[in-house]
């Protein structure tokens, strides 16, 4: 199994940390992982993206042209990455703030109202966890228990009390993803 993912959106949406948690979850179940962020002037204008690869094998290129899955969280990223999903691949997006919805027919498109759900749950910071839940429903590449383990490893001790909230957010994402 090799899953090649691009996660793209605004800085501050938790794009990089979502990728990191995914990568950590992969480590928890003995897989190879890579996490390659955009950095520097690429990030001006507030966009951020990260390429995450989770695989049973040694990972070759950590940067890619085409992806199995694109998780898209703003319009600029939609413009840039819709085309990069491999035929038969998955595009998951949050429609909030999207003016031009994806139109490809050779891929499977999923929606998650991540921003809305997070706001309803009373904490916009867990937005990325809702989206992660939606992704894991579509592509269960890592087990939920390993995500929790990954969270524990990547979060400093003082934030561990927030893990149940994150778990709820993931569950909400899993429940609410729509095709």
């Amino acid at each position: 199994m090799t899953e090649e993912i691009i996660i793209a959106g605004f800085g501050g949406q938790g794009v990089l940390s979502m990728g990191k948690i995914l990568a950590y979850s992969g480590i928890m179940q003995d897989q190879e992982v890579s996490w390659m962020p955009s950095y520097g002037p690429e990030m001006r204008g507030g966009t951020a993206n990260v390429t995450v690869i989770v695989s049973d094998e040694r990972i070759s290129s950590p940067t890619l042209t085409f992806y199995d899955t694109a998780i898209i969280l703003n319009q600029q990223s939609m413009d840039k990455f819709e085309e990069t999903v491999k035929p038969g691949g998955v595009l998951l997006y949050d429609p909030n703030g999207i003016s031009k919805h994806p139109s490809r027919t050779d891929i499977t498109i999923y929606k998650i109202e991540g921003a809305k759900i997070a706001a309803d749950m009373g904490n916009t910071k867990i937005f990325n966890m809702v989206v992660l839940g939606a992704y894991l429903k579509v592509k269960p590449i890592v087990k939920l228990e390993n995500v929790i383990k990954g969270l524990k490893k990547s979060l400093p001790e003082r934030y561990h009390k927030l893990i149940p909230l994150n778990e709820d957010a993931i569950t909400m994402g899993m429940k609410n993803v729509i095709n």
């Binding site: 990568a23 992969g26 190879e32 992982v33 890579s34 996490w35 390659m36 962020p37 950590p62 940067t63």
Partner: peptide, 10 residues
């Protein structure tokens, strides 16, 4: 290089 420096891996 910047790629190896900036990326995270296991």
């Amino acid at each position: 290089d910047g790629l190896i420096g900036q990326m995270m891996e296991k």
